[in-house]
Design a binder for these strands. Structure first.
Lengths: 257, 257
DNA sequence: AGAAGTAGGACGTGGGACGTCCTATGACTT
DNA sequence: AAGTCATAGGACGTCCCACGTCCTACTTCT
């Protein structure tokens, strides 16, 4: 009753061949795109899809499940299936698994998360420093103020702070990704018993970012963001799970592994 | 025989409630994490999963389909189900749909793709400029040389060029994401009848990036990357689908781009 | 007219059957 | 004895059918 009784080994390299059901998935997507169905529009019934495509309802359901997992469709029990927004929430499962799965031996996954967020936010903040609504500053200050008060709201304010900046730049994808990274980082960190962020220090760093934005200096803004993330990394290094480990060179066999 | 005969409207806001089957998905993931099954490890049979969890094989299959869509498991017909790598290929469907779906009215989705890639690659290249293997330069030069020769290989060399730099930094997630963005951009561009890249101009920009890397000047490297993407944007603007449209401010109607 | 009850549509789940694909084992050939 | 081919069995793929649950919209009663 072990995992599997046959002599399968991990070193199987044979790739899964193109599946039939993948074809169904494609057809459903094409249906949405061809008819230009907007987000929220009702999809055909499972039954009518089955008839149109010429497969059983069971196969349709499996295809729909796959699309649902990607946020491409949204299913409501007893009501119908609708076109989804393909928002970043759909990737949460993916990214969280990716972060956890090889996590036991490689805490660097957590670091990757932080690193990508830093890259995007650095550039994003630079651009916002060059051009932003005047009201933004006040909104950011309000977040910082909330962060100064300890409590569960501090984390929320932290996330809102970053989201405000990312939203300001106007790149939806970038904004959603950074939000996703924030959420997954938080979830993975909590799971590994990592450090809870220290609100006062974070507030201080955030204030520095606001100051840079006020001055309109793009490079200063980028610098402030870098320092913010430096501190997060430093805190992580002191955490229970022993920090991230060093960056390893990609291809060469010089170090690491 | 229309899309749906009932009077559903697009403005449905009711959110889908937590589904039972989502629970099954979670249990399967937990199984992988708890047993620390590495990528490629065989999963229990659908039948045994059904017995263990106490649901029908049908439900298991739907859950597995969802996980398969995210690359968390890999199913091989007639052989078994295996733990997947959760690689970025899984997101291709997601991102391509996201880019295409609102594409007809908003070509800005394509721009978002490019923009995020630029942000990540700018930062990544800066870091690589500060520290990289000496062999990297030669490898990059080889790519540039291939790009100078027109033909289908030029695009491949283009992708390899970027991938080499991203790999050098050692952040897997960043590397996979930029690769994903490249692929999806290419696919979406082709679909919209966009411009094929002009190899000589691209090669020139890439050469500038290599030069910056040789000099070890992080800021120069960032600048070179920015100029590279500027050119891609310029080319896109001249494309058949009429360019990206301007950056829109997130909330207010004040300034732009 | 308004509210409660009801019929029907649509998704959720379960169970079983059969086809297809793959591997491993054993018989057969050289 | 070693290699090749045929075969049996395991595991996924697809299908059918039935019933439960949930939601909406219509009908009916007050």
């Amino acid at each position: 009753m072990a995992t599997c009784q046959c002599k399968k080994d991990i070193r199987e390299t044979r790739v899964a061949r193109p599946q039939r059901s993948e074809e169904i998935t494609k057809q459903i997507i094409d249906l949405i795109v061809d008819r230009q169905l907007p987000t929220g529009a009702p999809m055909p019934t499972e039954l009518s899809l089955a008839e149109d495509i010429g497969v059983s309802r069971n196969s349709i359901r499996e295809a729909v499940k796959a699309l649902q997992a990607l946020g491409i469709v949204e299913v409501r029990h007893g009501y119908g299936t609708f076109v989804g927004s393909a928002g970043s929430e759909a990737l949460q499962t993916w990214l969280l698994f990716r972060t956890r799965s090889r996590g036991s031996t490689d805490a660097g996954r957590l670091r990757d998360l932080l690193e990508v967020r830093e890259m995007i936010e650095t550039e994003l903040t630079s651009r916002v420093a060059r051009d932003h609504r005047p009201e933004l500053i006040g909104e950011l200050q309000a977040c910082v103020a909330r962060m100064r008060r300890k409590g569960p709201d501090a984390a929320v304010a932290d996330r809102e702070f970053h989201d405000l900046i990312c939203a300001e730049a106007g790149f939806d994808l970038a904004r959603e990704l950074t939000g996703l990274f924030w959420d997954v980082y938080r979830a993975a960190e909590g799971e590994m018993g990592g450090p809870v962020s220290s609100a006062p220090a974070t507030a201080k760093r955030h204030q520095a970012i606001v100051d840079a934005l006020v001055s309109g200096d793009a490079e200063a803004a980028a610098h402030a963001v870098h320092r913010h993330f430096d501190e997060v990394r430093k805190r992580a290094k002191a955490g229970r799970y022993g920090g991230f480990g060093e960056a390893r060179p990609a291809v060469s066999g010089s170090a690491a592994s």
